[in-house]
Each structure stands twice: as structure tokens, then as C-alpha cells.
């Protein structure tokens, strides 16, 4: 910005931002102090001691480690599925001509408005009849299937600015559509594909409703988190640890890649400039 720095805005924004992260600080502190100390408030300093007791106990009392790996596996598979299928479809929708192309495209890219509640009942009955309840396919299929609504739009949008000359040159050189995709388009479209992957990863890692309903024996972290309180007790220290474990990976991914989201469509405009 031009002109002098307006310090009062820095101070004001700083105060608001500090208030903003207090709840995060709250669970971190709660997880590290003995419950007897925080019963009157985690911020109180009458007596102050740090204990890793909750951090040690939670792994024994709840299958947190298993859930962690399971969540990672689900998110990885769903991300991989979307990252593999999306660019292929976006390429076909953009560079190839085939019957019903536009109709299918319109259908897919407008589905992004649908709330997840729509799939709850139909897929529940379908999985029940197919005996797929408690099979990871029961969540992977909707994870990947629903992602196309936004992922294809994102990648196709990028391809709109892809130099058409390159495609034509490849065609003249005798490349078929599949090898054009593999050798010309994919190597030059890594940034939107990567952005799709990051988004899909965050979305599937944090999913609560579908795994809660369709999975049984293994549960991902967000579902486990809702169970980490005794049937009749509340265990705030353990809850806090579980909350941190649940959110740490997506949060790190989010912080590292926030530039991808920060400027909205940086992935798209970045290629233009």
C-alpha cells in the first residue's frame, strides 16, 4: 500500500486475530494440564504443571492410532482416485468431441450445489442391499464421485487457457488422444491437478457424516472424536488430545498450501500471467 503505514489498523487486526486463536490455544493447554488443575479454567495459573498423561493415555483408551492410519488411508485413496480420474475427464471434455459432451458437462459441474444430505438415505439403502456397509468402498465411491462436481470444473477451466497449438502439433506428429493426454497435457497441468488433490485430501480427512453412517468396525478420526467421551463422562483432557490429533494433519496441509486457496483462483490466473 502506498503512503504511510496505518499502525492503528495493525493493532486492531492483531487484537482480533489474537482473540481468534484463543479457542485453539484452549484445547492445546487443556490437553497438557492435569484435569484437576483445569477444572476451574484452563487459563488459570494458581498452580501450573504440564503433564503428558492425557497424551499417553488416549492411545490406550481409544483406537486413536489405528483411526489415524485408517483416516490417512481413506484420504489418500480418495485423493488418488480423484487426481487420476479428473484430469482424464477434464481433458476429454475440453479437447475431444463426443455425443452428449455438453449435457454431461453441465450436469457434472452443476452438481456442486447438492448438499451431502442427499446421498445419505439412498446410499445407505443401496450399500445395505449390496452388503457394502462397513466396506471402505461405501465411503470412497461417494468421496470420489461427489468430488467431480468441482474438480472437473477446476481442471477444465485451467485447460481453457492451455495452448491449443500444442495439441494440434501433437496431432500432426501422430499422437493419438491418449498419448496427447499423457505426454502433452498432464505434464503441463500439474498445478490444477495438485490443487484438486489438496482440496480432496482436506475434504475427505474431515468427513464425519458419511463414515459415521456407512462404516462400522473402523472409523476415521472425526467419528472417533465424537466418541471420545465416556458414555456418561466427559474427559476433557482426552477429548482435547483427540481433537488435536484429528486436526493436525489437515491443518498443516492447509497452512502449507494456503496460497492455493488464498487468492481464490491463483492456480488458474497464475498460469495466465
Amino acid at each position: 500500500m502506498i503512503g504511510r503505514i496505518h499502525w492503528w489498523t495493525v493493532v486492531l487486526v492483531g487484537v482480533i486475530a489474537t482473540i481468534w486463536v484463543i479457542p485453539v490455544l484452549g484445547i492445546v493447554v487443556t490437553s497438557l494440564r492435569p484435569p484437576s488443575e483445569v477444572a476451574l479454567g484452563w487459563w488459570r495459573l494458581d498452580t501450573f504443571s504440564i503433564t503428558f498423561d492425557a497424551w499417553i493415555r488416549v492411545w490406550d483408551e481409544y483406537p486413536l492410532a489405528q483411526a489415524f492410519w485408517f483416516t490417512a488411508m481413506l484420504a489418500a485413496l480418495a485423493t488418488l482416485g480423484t487426481m487420476l480420474l479428473t484430469p482424464a475427464a477434464a481433458y476429454a471434455f475440453h479437447f475431444l468431441n463426443f455425443p452428449f459432451r455438453r449435457l454431461l458437462l453441465i450436469l457434472i459441474i452443476n452438481a456442486f450445489v447438492l448438499p451431502q444430505q442427499v446421498v445419505v438415505i439412498p446410499l445407505f439403502t443401496l450399500w445395505r442391499d449390496l452388503k457394502l456397509i462397513d466396506n471402505i468402498a461405501a465411503v470412497l465411491i461417494p468421496y470420489v464421485g461427489m468430488s467431480f462436481a468441482w474438480s472437473i470444473f477446476l481442471v477444465k477451466n485451467f485447460l481453457e487457457d492451455f495452448p491449443k497449438e500444442l495439441i494440434e502439433a501433437a496431432k500432426i506428429d501422430g499422437c493419438g488422444p491418449l498419448s496427447t493426454l499423457r505426454h502433452i497435457v498432464l505434464p503441463n497441468a500439474t498445478s490444477p491437478i495438485f490443487a484438486v488433490g489438496v482440496l480432496q485430501f482436506l475434504w475427505t480427512w474431515n468427513a464425519l457424516l458419511l463414515p459415521m453412517l456407512y462404516l462400522r468396525s473402523m472409523q476415521p478420526l472425526p467419528v472417533l472424536l465424537t466418541k471420545v467421551s465416556g458414555t456418561y463422562e466427559s474427559n476433557w483432557d482426552l477429548r482435547s488430545v483427540a481433537a488435536i490429533v484429528t486436526t493436525i494433519v489437515p491443518l498443516i496441509v492447509f497452512v502449507i498450501f494456503q496460497r492455493q486457496f488464498a487468492a481464490g483462483s491463483q492456480t488458474r490466473t497464475g498460469a495466465k500471467e
Partner: peptide
């Protein structure tokens, strides 16, 4: 052990989901 999920406050919600889901 099969532990049902869901059903805040009353475990029956999660148990129904499990049994109706063919568990």
C-alpha cells in the same frame, strides 16, 4: 466387540443404524 457410532446422548440411534444396516 462391535461398537456403534452416532446417536448423541442416546446410544439407540447408533444401534439402529448398525442393525438396520445389516450388521
Amino acid at each position: 466387540e462391535f461398537q456403534p457410532a452416532g446417536g448423541q446422548g442416546d446410544a439407540r440411534g447408533g444401534m439402529r443404524t448398525a442393525l438396520m444396516g445389516g450388521e
